[in-house]
Amino acid sequence: MNQDKAIIKALKTLEGPTLSDDFSSGMMNRIYLDAAKKKRRSYIGSLCLLSAVSLAMISMAAYLLRDYLTVSLTFHLPSLASLFESVAKYGFGFYIAFLTILLIALDYYFRSVWQKHKNEKFRQYNS
């Protein structure tokens, strides 16, 4: 079947106009526009999501404050006052806050090390 010279020759003559010289540059312009549009869309999407989550949290807080906390706040106030008696009771809170800050700092450090390593690998591969 591969020896069908006549078909090969006929297919060669069926070639039409060639691609214009500025095809790649024109195409890249369209690609850049599309990429910018995609970026903008994802930015708007995350902004909408963030707004929706914030709105939901604010609504929930408002609901709790109105229907639940207003009643219990007056009820718990005397016991809240007793908390101020001893500063040592805040120790645990400070300990948790310290741990959280430490973990965030470690996360940031390891992320930057990993990113640096990744960039180095790409550079080595391309050189």
Binding site: K5, A6, I8
Partner: peptide
């Protein structure tokens, strides 16, 4: 299909 020098056949083929 093996003959590729017959112009008339090539035209028919196209």
């Amino acid at each position: 299909f093996e003959e590729d020098d017959n112009e008339h056949r090539l035209q028919q083929l196209e």
